[in-house]
Structures are given as C-alpha cells and as structure tokens.
Nucleic acid binder design. Structure first.
Length: 490
RNA sequence: GCCCCCAUCGUCUAGCGGCCCAGGACAUCGCCCUCUCACGGCGAAGACACCGGUUCAAAUCCGGUUGGGGGUACCA
C-alpha cells in the first residue's frame, strides 16, 4: 500500500544535463532508501524537438552515473508504455472524460488571438489568463469554425474560486489563488498530443507515483496539476520541489557556462562516484562535517528534509577537488581501468595490454595518482613515459636551461646515471650531492635541468622515480638529445 | 505586468531562540614537508542583505524593503 514509487521523466530534446541528473539522483536515492521503485519515463510529446539520439544519450548518462531504473525503457514494467508518445489513447480517454464531466472544452482561438489578449491583460496590469471565449460556443458556432478549417485544442476548465494548496515536502504549504493563478490551460494540443501539465498527471496517476521529486521550476505549475488530479478523482501524490542549479553568474545553469552535459563530464575524466557525490551535495547536506559520501552511504543518509531551499551555484573547482579525492582512493588496478580508455585513445597503449605493460602502467599511475584531478590529465602527464618524441615545453626551457653550467651539469648527471648500479634515490643522491659541491649549486639546479631533459617539462613526479621508470638507456638518450639541442641553439 | 519560491564567508553549506563576537568543505593567502608539481600537515583572511517589530534574549520568529531565481506557451 505505502510503496514508494518515484520517477524521473526527462524530455529527450537534448543531452542529459547536470540539473536533470541531480533530479534523477534525488529520486533514485529516495527510491533506494525506501526500498521503492524508480521509474524512468520519457516525455516525448514535443514532436518537433524529441529525438531518439537524445533518449539514448539520457540512458547512457544514467548508466554512467549508476542510476538504474526498475521500470522504463529497455526494462519494461507493468505500468507501461514508458514513452508518452505511446500513451496517446490514454490522454485522449481522460481528456474526453473531462469534457463529458464539463471540466474541459474545445477552444478554437488562434495563437495570434491569444497573444493579443495576453498583451492587453499585461497592459492593464492584470495576470494573464484565458478569457473563456470558447467555453460558451454553440454547436453551430463550433461547426462553423471547424468548417473554416480550425482545429481545436482542449482546455481544462479550472476552478472558479478558492485556493489550491501544495503541501511541499521541502517548502511547506504553498497556496495558489484558483482564479488568478490557475488558467484554463490547454491539455490537448491541436496536433493531438497532450501538453506537459496534463500528460504528467495522467502518467503519474496511472503509474501510481507516490512522490513527485522535481525541479523548483515546476512549483508554479503544480496547482494546475492538482486540479486535474482532483477533477479525475486521482489521489494526489506528495510533492518535493528541489532548488535549481545556477551558473557562476547566478543565472540558470546552461551550456553557455561550459560543460553541462553529463556525458561531457565523463569524457573529461570525472569518476562516476565523484560526480554523484558532488551532485548530491548540490542542494543537500548531511551535517556540518562530512562531504565525502560513497554511494551506499548516500542511500542510507539522504533525506528530503535536509534538502536546501535555495538555488545552488555549480562550482566546478569543488567538483575537481572531489574527483581528485576519489582518484586517490582508487586502487592502482582500478585507476588503470579508468585511465585505460584515455591512454588507448592517445595511442600510448594498445587494445590488448600485456601483463608486462600493465605493470609499467601501474608504476606510472602510482606516481601520477596524487597529482591527478581529472583522468584526462593523465594523458599529458604521462606522455613522456610512452614516447621519446616529446616536445620541450618552452617555458621550462627558458626557465631552467638559461642558467650557467647547464650543459656541464647535464653531462655530470649523465655520468652519474651511467655509473649507478640502480636508478634510485639511494644510489643517485650521493653522486648528485657530490656534484653540488663541485658546481657550487643547489639540488634544484641539478635536478631541474635533468627533469626537463628527460620529461620535457619542469613539472613531474619525483625525479628519482621518473628516472627509474624510464630506465638507463632512455635517460641517457634523452640527455644526449638535450645536449645536442642546446648546442644547436647557441 | 501578475503570481510563486528563496536570502549565513567568493562558492556549497551547518545552524531550526540562549551552546554562535557563527562551525565545516572548496577556492584564496602564509608556513611546514621538498628536486619541481601535487599529496599531506599547520595557520590566516572571509558571511548572518537591509529596516522595523516580537522576546529577558534573534542568524534563528513576524512584517516590509532590496536582491536573486522560477512560472505566467498548442516547451517540458
């Protein structure tokens, strides 16, 4: 009886963006916590903008985030179909029922006529609402209009008095004046499709949705929907309107703020659990100390009454930090699994990785792990481990190779490397230190030129580790190459 | 225009009448570690939008102002 049934109902008119993902996440968490059902429904009633690619992109995005649905596309369920475009008969049936009850009527007004009336209402300082011009049309008038070729829409006849209350789980009681706030809105368009405010009610009612968790942008539409529930005698679900996500300029988060598509985040190297963790914290918090929440803990601790009422600015820097935290928590093996596609795409490693190569990768990753925020960063950071043909970073050359004695120091380092039984700190450091006295310089003045010589950059993991990974041959070749370059330059 | 929602450090937030001259995290700055960069450790700076009430006592309750967001479609 009290089964929790929630749903995520995106319209396939583009990629899933982080706002939608966050809504999906809150629904999913709520369902999982209560042992309920998470339904995925595709709201594709906008014929002009809905595409199959978008549907697929949404499915892929949810999968990446690990938000599995119990009923919906590719999964089925006993409340289907789960595409609104396949539920047209249902909407028609209930629209007719409303008309028979006298709670809906055909309207022949053209968009132009309606626009004009709206403008006048605004000019007069009134709220905008349909003037019920078509409510009292006689059968003859209707027939005449249809002969003219006008195709009617169906409007809901809203209540003439009183207020409609939305008892929101997050915002508390919100009251709307029926006359001023609930228009005789269109429920069936002239193309035979239902409008959002109608279809959402029919579907949520028929799918026995118990809690409607959605963005705050739907709060103002809720009284309209509640009137439909009531007119049709459907039980009204509980509502929870979660705050919007904004960009740094406090405008609604959109493409112009940068990446907003979930798949884009995946491609940029964000780990799924980091993404989920960050999204969960946008508008929700647990206490005054914890910020890292593994998914099972989220399922356990999430609650709607800890959801904030104010809109949240999407902070990419915090997401980056969090991604770094999750990267550092990965085992090297798991990190390799995550990094693999990036390295394959860069041509560093083949499709099939030998155990010897994997071992090498793991050793590299051990050094890179504490320095990574994004998986994608590992490509540039690891380039010199996979190719000898790397470019020297101009800033590094300018800064490091401009010092006196550079070439002598590099030659000394080459000798040290050539003579050391092992390329590690234990064997190299004493030799390097001896060099410092000889040249009258500090450790950095020796290590930095050597670093640039073997990596092409002045920023890398610990040099001893890098040298050991590269091996004697490659190190000596690279020092040679650098020396030649310096000679040619002067 | 009309209606609805919201208002604590730059950002996400804790706070639900006294524990708060406001706590945490990211970002920023400084120090330590140190071969560079990270990681890690320590520390600094940084907020209750404003004005009125209510109360012995307000970040917390009420009203207003201002500001931000949303809705007002034959989009969802």
């Amino acid at each position: 009886m009290n089964t929790v049934r929630v749903r995520f109902a995106p319209s396939p008119t583009g990629y899933l963006h982080v706002g939608g993902a966050r809504t999906a996440l809150f629904n999913w968490l709520f369902a999982r916590q209560h042992g309920g059902v998470f339904v995925l429904r595709i709201e594709d009633t906008d014929l002009a903008r809905s595409t199959e690619e978008s549907t697929q992109a949404i499915l892929d995005s949810l999968q990446y985030l690990g938000l599995d649905w119990d009923e919906g596309p590719k999964k089925g369920g006993s409340f289907g179909p789960y595409f609104q475009s396949e539920r047209l008969e249902l909407y028609k049936k209930y629209a007719n029922q409303l008309m028979e009850m006298g709670r809906a009527y055909k309207c022949y007004c053209t968009p132009e006529e309606l626009d004009k009336k709206r403008e006048e209402q605004i000019k007069r300082g009134e709220g905008t609402h349909y003037d019920r011009h078509c409510l009292h049309l006689s059968e003859e008038e209707k027939a005449r209009l249809e002969e003219e070729g006008r195709i009617p829409v169906i409007r809901f006849k809203s209540l003439d008095e009183g207020v409609t209350e939305v008892d929101d789980l997050i915002r508390g009681l919100v009251r709307f004046d029926n006359v001023a706030q609930v228009d005789d809105f269109v429920i069936m368009k002239s193309d035979g499709m239902p409008t959002y405010n109608f279809a959402v009610v029919i579907d949520d009612a028929l799918m026995q949705i118990s809690h409607v968790i959605r963005g705050e942008d739907h709060l103002s539409n809720t009284p309209k929907q509640i009137q439909i529930y009531q007119a049709l005698g459907f039980p009204v679900p509980k509502f929870a309107h979660i705050p919007m996500i904004l960009g740094p300029d406090r405008a609604l988060l959109s493409k112009r703020h940068g990446a907003t598509s979930v798949m884009q985040f995946k491609e940029n190297g964000y780990l799924s659990p980091a993404m989920v963790n960050y999204l969960a914290l946008l508008g929700w918090s647990y206490d005054d100390s914890q910020t890292i929440f593994p998914i099972p803990e989220l399922v356990e601790k999430f609650s709607l009454d800890k959801v904030s009422k104010n809109p949240a600015v999407f902070d990419i820097q915090k997401l980056d930090w969090m991604n770094g935290v999750y990267i550092r928590e990965l085992s090297l093996d798991d990190l390799f699994t995550e990094v693999k596609p990036f390295w394959q795409k860069a041509g560093f490693i083949p499709e099939e990785v030998s155990s010897e190569l994997k071992d090498y990768c793991l050793r590299i990753l051990k050094e890179l792990q504490p320095r990574m925020k994004l998986l994608s960063e590992s490509v540039e950071a690891a380039r010199y481990f996979f190719t000898d043909d790397f470019a020297y970073k101009p800033e590094a050359v300018a800064k490091v190779f401009s010092k006196p004695q550079t070439e002598e120091i590099l030659r000394y380092a080459a000798d040290a490397v050539a003579g050391a039984p092992e390329l590690d700190e234990e064997h190299l450091k004493p030799v390097f230190q001896a060099g410092l006295e000889k040249f009258g310089v500090k450790m950095g003045d020796l290590m930095q030129p050597l670093r640039v010589a073997v990596t092409g950059t002045n920023v890398s993991p610990g040099l001893y580790e890098v040298l050991a990974l590269l091996g004697r041959d490659r190190v000596l070749k690279r020092i040679d190459r650098t020396l030649n370059m310096l000679k040619e330059r002067s």
